[in-house]
Design a protein around this nucleic acid. Structure first.
Length: 498
RNA sequence: GGCGACGUCGCCAAGUGGCAAGGCAGAGGCCUGCAAAGCCUCCAUCCCCGGUUCGAAUCCGGGCGUCGCCUCCA
């Protein structure tokens, strides 16, 4: 199959063909660390984690680079507000960012360079741009001359003249053109600064991505990613700088993730309508948030709400319950007569279909929503098979449901959606021993034996239609965090995670 | 004002020329002593108007609406 992806530069889907056979080089713009990231930021990082994971699943050796912007106007402002050094703000929120990514289950980048560790290289690129006539220095600042680069506007589909007539560009008499942007900024008192040929100063924002991506990946590299709000001016400027400096194409495929909205409006720190990722993760497991995000295509806008988190939780339970049920059956002897041959064959086909559809959807610009749809269909097929045959399973049947389990776990894993660990043999809480003594007269200390005695006692009560006693036993277990479910093949015990 | 995207069931959302996936919610039924989990059935002709085509949610034109970018922003 051919992987097709939407390239902003081409404004269409294209077949993917990496620079080096079997290898993919990708760069994704990271955060500016002046605050905790919000879930809009998280969505973009999750989208590119999905892309990275799928490329790896597909067999590519992926080199994934993401920067951390640790010197910037916003950091300086946050530092001034808090009365602490800018470096302290950057250090605090860099650490918070790394933890948030880890909590989200995002795979760590192959390299994660920081702006403050790349100053000499950035100065080098500015010098090259001046030498080549694409940039000019004025009073300790250095600007990139957009008119000097013929391709300016090709990524965002803009025309320099149209942009200027838009008239929202700040006027600065020292610039040759209002759209010229800073490569190097002279330092004001109290700001972080580094020595340079133009005096003490700091790099402009766009510069670091150009320098780091080339350092880590070489040019042209394969995939450049970021949120769609970065297309202009950030990525347009990056592209212009890099191609002007190297004389070569910069990146082959530009991928942009859709915005996360709240009440149909973009979530952003400036609008103040943001929810921090860390706060969401305190209330909901990471896989639930990820499932919510992946049910929408990565390029589409996504409306976020607590209600949707609740819905995603329910949907997630479908998968969790399925693998729990399968594991429970697999942990028991399969001495039944077996499911009808036709049903077994149908389930086998459902597994194949789910795998085929997963690949086909993901090959088409990473359509995770479609891919998930296929997995839900497989879940229904498997549940149907089990509910029809759960008391009659034979070894052949176990083999097929095991296949369902690995398919679901593996493919959700490609999407980064993890399922609860195998608890087919749950670790029971200590309280079962004393409960067992109370309700079943158990006198030992083994938890599993105690639980068996409890279940036997409840089974007897149920056989005698002593519902009050049976329910009392169940309530006793519930109080210990042990859930009991009656199935045709016997009572099933699960232990809640918390 | 310029550039761009989108408008599919109550909500969310796939599908980009051949009789409209999936999730959540809802109705009815099955299983169960009850419960939990689950299964079955039901629930849309795709914003509006034209056009192209044997055939369009899918292509073209127009309209209406929403959103994004044009300034820092994932």
């Amino acid at each position: 199959m051919t992987l097709r992806l939407y390239n902003t530069l081409a404004r269409s889907k294209q077949d993917f063909s990496p620079r080096d056979e079997g290898k993919v080089s990708m760069y994704v713009c990271g955060p500016t660390v002046y605050n905790h990231i919000h879930i809009g930021n998280a969505r973009t990082f999750l989208s590119f984690d999905l892309i990275r994971r799928y490329l790896e699943h597909r067999g590519y050796d992926v080199r994934f680079v993401q920067n951390i912007t640790d010197v910037d106007d916003k950091i300086i402002r946050a530092a001034n507000d808090a009365g602490v050094p800018a470096a302290e703000i950057a250090a605090t929120y860099s650490a918070a960012f790394l933890k948030a990514m880890s909590d989200l289950g995002v795979e760590p980048p192959s390299a994660q360079p920081r702006a403050t560790e790349t100053i000499p290289e950035m100065i080098g690129m500015v010098e090259t741009l001046i030498e080549r006539g694409f940039a000019y220095a004025v009073d300790g600042d250095v600007y990139f001359s957009v008119r000097s680069f013929p391709g300016y506007g090709k990524l965002s589909g803009r025309d320099i003249d149209d942009l200027e007539s838009g008239a929202r560009v700040e006027v600065d008499e020292r610039k040759h053109d209002p759209l010229d942007f800073a490569l190097w900024k002279s330092a004001k008192p109290g700001e972080p600064h580094w020595p340079s040929p133009w005096g003490e100063g700091r790099p402009g924002w766009h510069l670091e991505c150009s320098v780091m991506s080339e350092m880590e990946l070489g040019v042209p590299f394969d995939i450049h990613g970021g949120g769609s709000d970065l297309v202009f001016p950030h990525h347009e400027n990056e592209l212009a700088q890099s191609e002007a400096a190297t004389g070569r194409p910069f990146a082959s495929y530009w991928l942009h993730g859709g915005m996360l909205n709240i009440n149909a409006e973009k979530m952003s720190k400036s609008l103040g309508n943001f929810t921090l990722l860390k706060d969401v993760l305190e209330a909901y497991p990471a896989p639930v948030l990820r499932l919510l995000m992946l049910q929408t295509h990565y390029r589409s806008p996504l409306d976020f709400s607590t209600e949707r988190l609740e819905e995603a939780s329910t949907a997630y339970e479908r998968f969790a319950n399925l693998v729990r049920t399968i594991r429970w059956h697999r942990a028991r002897p399969a001495a039944g007569a077996g499911a009808p041959e036709g049903e077994r064959a149908a389930l086998e086909l459902a597994v194949t279909d789910a795998r085929t559809r997963f690949e086909a959807d993901m090959e088409d610009d990473f359509n995770s929503a479609g891919a998930l749809g296929g997995l839900f269909e497989l879940a229904r097929s498997a549940n149907g098979f089990l509910s029809a045959n759960d008391a009659a399973l034979a070894p052949d049947d176990l083999a097929i449901i095991a296949d369902v389990e690995t398919t679901v776990v593996d493919l959700l894993g490609v999407l980064g959606v993890t399922l609860p660990a195998d608890e087919s043999v749950p670790e029971l809480p200590e309280g079962v021993v004393s409960l067992s003594r109370d309700v079943a007269g158990y006198e030992g200390t083994d938890r599993d034996e105690a639980a068996d005695a409890i279940l036997a006692a409840r089974a007897t009560a149920r056989a005698e239609k002593d519902w009050a006693r049976a329910d009392a036993i169940r309530d006793g277990l519930t109080a210990l965090g042990v859930r009991i479910e009656d199935t045709a093949a016997g009572a099933r015990v699960t232990v809640s995670e918390s």
